[in-house]
Amino acid sequence: MATGEVGEALRRLGIGVTAVRLYLALLELAPVPLPELGAATGLDEDELAAAYAELVEARLSSAATGDGEAVAPLPPAAGLQFLGRLRAAELDASCITVAGAFDTLRRRRPAAFKNDLVEVVTGEDIGPRLRQTWAGACDQIRQFDSPPYFPIPTATDEALATLTRGVTQRVVYSRESLEYPGNFRRSIEPCIAAGEQARVVHAVPVKLIIVDDACALVSLSIHEVDVHHTLLVVRPCGLFSALVALFEQTWQNALPLYDSRTPPPQGAAAPPQRPLPADRRMLALLAGGVPDEDIARELGISRRTLFRRLEVLMTRLGATTRFQLALQAQRRGWL
């Protein structure tokens, strides 16, 4: 790799220009006594001491003993992690400082920002705004999910990437979400497998995404003609607090969908064998109240095959009704 690229990478991590020059020379000459390194880089004694101390503090170089012993670069993994965490902490502190200054201004002059609490986004601007806000989540995303869906082909991949970053996702799905052709297998199930917390209700009161405690996105789509024409961006205010309360109340009343990572409850009887993925999908759809025809279509089977699978599962779990089937499946951690 070119030394220029290495130097630029170190500068982006916060290493000073002189220390970068010294480190590049160290890579070429090590092991080498520190005075010889200074002579090779043209640094005087004070400059050499300050720059090398910076490398030692960053855990990129061995400590100089001062008795002429040779110095050398250290394996960079630990040092780079240290610098990365340090820069991240500095960036977080800077963001807090700037945001705090703005909030102070907003509190001093509320009249100047009264129109900024609710923003209206329309037409082709909706998709990019949804993606931008979702990608900016730091802590958690809370969502009411229901058709019609805005056409974002990468939506599932972006949701999975957010989960990978450690952002908590809690989603309340409407029954229509589970009935929407291909949506359960293509979008819902992969997100649950990746750690999403999912619940279902018959119908959600509004299409909603709450990102951290920063903003709420409210869709005003016209369901009858499937037109996605207006999105409201609501920032912290009384309306925002009401939307958060609405989500939390709905979440408490919703029925959990299965989580493929959750073990059976402690003390539950172990089933003779784990259910097939298709059977778990079928149970989740049943628990969500999806009609038999839509479940069969989602699984790609006939209604007759669906009924046979249900009979087999009911026999395995000792259930005589669908209610008992759902109850026994949940007790065994299948839902």
Rank of each mutant, 00 (worst) to 15 (best):
A89D: 03
V201T: 08
P205C: 04
A245D: 15
Q330E: 15
V120K: 05
R185M: 07
H228N: 08
R87C: 08
V56I: 09
P265S: 04
R281P: 06
I210Q: 02
I96K: 10
L286Y: 00
L257Y: 01
Q143L: 02
G123I: 06
A101S: 04
P256F: 00
F144T: 01
G123E: 07
D145S: 08
P272H: 12
Q273K: 11
D44G: 08
A112D: 09
P147T: 10
P73M: 07
P148E: 08
L13V: 14
F240R: 08
E57L: 15
Q132W: 13
A99G: 03
E189L: 15
N183V: 14
T315I: 12
T156M: 13
A99L: 06
R175Q: 13
E124S: 06
S174A: 14
L10K: 00
G289F: 02
D139I: 09
V172P: 02
A155F: 06
L283A: 02
P73S: 08
L325W: 03
V290S: 01
V244R: 13
E158C: 03
P272W: 07
V20N: 02
V167P: 05
R235F: 09
P76A: 14
Q132K: 14
R331M: 04
R87H: 11
L276A: 11
A49H: 04
R106C: 03
P263M: 07
G123C: 10
V234R: 00
A50L: 12
A268N: 09
P277T: 09
H228M: 04
H229E: 14
S146F: 03
L29M: 09
D212Y: 07
E28G: 03
G16H: 05
G79D: 03
A39D: 08
A269T: 13
Q81M: 15
C237D: 10
G123D: 15
A39N: 10
F184Y: 15
A137W: 04
A77E: 15
E311V: 12
L26D: 00
I209T: 03
L27R: 13
V56H: 01
P265V: 01
L313I: 11
R261W: 05
A198Q: 05
T321H: 10
A269D: 11
A326C: 11
A326R: 01
G182M: 08
R106T: 08
L27A: 11
L29E: 09
I152M: 15
L91D: 05
S221W: 14
E224D: 11
Q266I: 07
G84H: 14
R131I: 15
Q249C: 04
E5C: 09
G100L: 01
I126T: 05
D116L: 11
P277D: 13
P236M: 03
A93Q: 06
R11T: 12
S219W: 02
N115H: 14
A30N: 00
T97W: 02
P256V: 03
D67N: 07
G166I: 05
V206W: 06
G14C: 08
T41K: 08
A70V: 03
Y52L: 00
R186K: 14
D292Q: 12
I210L: 15
A270C: 08
A284I: 04
T97K: 12
L86R: 13
G16V: 05
E311I: 07
A89H: 07
A30E: 00
C237K: 02
A72T: 15
L37C: 01
